[in-house]
Design a protein around this nucleic acid. Structure first.
Lengths: 216, 216
DNA sequence: GAGTGTGAATGTATTCACAGCA
DNA sequence: TGCTGTGAATACATTCACACTC
């Protein structure tokens, strides 16, 4: 394993490698060049990415698919079960409650919270919705690890505070708000909307072409 | 305007600045430092990002909110109307058809396609669904600029080919498949799932801590 | 004085190219 | 011989610091 620390972007590429490894026979072999071709990168990039975390291949032979797959799953932390509380059962919240991909990766949304009385005590995708005043009690009782914030920006900080108060140490923020949390709490912002907003820019690619190009 | 070309990441930050500028009075003034504080970065970064595209401020005074907002909208290409055809009315496709944020940014999903006979000729969010065999005719008739692919990986390439055949020059690929399109066609891949998959990695942050940390 | 605009300095990520092992 | 693993070279992005303008 190299002494270099992985670049910020390495995890994203590992997850891409993993996606392709999952479509293959576990006892097969694969070279960095083959894997690279599948995800659209270079063999050197694949080897470098893997080398940050260990030595998983055999020189002259390549990698054993099943082994490599297992290693990447470990590196990404996908071998663990995460119990999650979702806060905010609006459009995005509902979509995430229904998204089957979470469960596959060990993300287990156990309970949801919303202030809307029409939602409280109802279920979405088999997950019970409670009022936020029950949060501290519920989160402790269920042994939940992580909170997902899918409320509007205005109430995002309030939701974060409540999660922290409930003993949560990891927060995923899907709202556009910039949150402040005490140091030991891990915070990750996930921003889908910005990604969608910059699409025309990337489609036009060069600034000079913007406006003159596609929409005629 | 500086001679340097903008880094790949500049557009994403511009969209963040824009989001905050939109919440403010257009005739107000704002300094790079203030804007920076709102999005959680430095004044220098804000100024540098803007300088790639022009000179929008006044020394000693700052930026006029409305002017800057307009400039960023132009840079990101959000001042144009884009007519879009969506291919694949599954979970993600439906969510995108219903997502109100597109319309706000000039993204106008005009028609959708799906092979499922139960969907053909029905509507989702007021948008008519047609069978793909009608694609070339429909796309030309409606004067559509861009295609959005939200089908499963297996049929993504097929959908892309059909879009290209229909005269489309810009494709947004939401499927995990790596697509091949002829040179003049602009292709952008949008990958939500990978972003979700690497969450545990980022939450644990350092490799050493993975597995030992949060889920106790 | 206040705050922009931007080269120059630093830091980070990617690519190259080859030594080393099966 | 074939393909990994990795330091060294290059390219890219961010931060610094200050000249310049209102």
């Amino acid at each position: 394993m190299s002494k270099e620390k992985p670049p910020e972007s390495a995890a994203l590429r590992l997850s891409l490698y993993l996606r392709h490894l999952r479509t293959m026979q576990g006892d097969g072999k694969i070279s960095s060049a083959e894997l690279a071709r599948m995800v659209g990168t270079s063999g050197a990039r694949v080897r470098k990415d893997l080398s940050y975390f260990g030595q998983f291949g055999t020189r002259g032979r390549g990698y054993v698919v099943g082994d490599l797959r297992g290693q990447i799953i470990d590196i990404l932390g996908l071998n663990q079960e995460w119990k999650i509380a979702l806060v905010g059962v609006g459009k995005l919240g509902t979509a995430l409650l229904r998204y089957p991909g979470f469960r596959r990766n060990g993300f287990h949304i156990t309970v949801a919270f919303d202030v809307n009385p029409e939602l409280v005590e109802r279920e979405v995708a088999g997950i019970e919705i409670r009022h936020p005043y029950q949060m501290p009690k519920t989160i402790r009782a269920l042994g939940i690890h992580m909170g997902m914030i899918t409320v509007p920006a205005e109430s995002a900080q309030e939701s974060a505070d409540l999660l922290v108060l409930s003993g949560i140490r990891a927060i995923l923020n899907f709202s556009p708000a910039r949150l402040v949390v005490p140091a030991p709490v891990r915070l990750k912002n996930v921003d889908f909307t910005s990604q969608l907003e910059i699409i025309p820019y990337h489609i036009a690619e060069t600034v000079a072409l913007t406006g003159s190009m596609l929409p005629r």
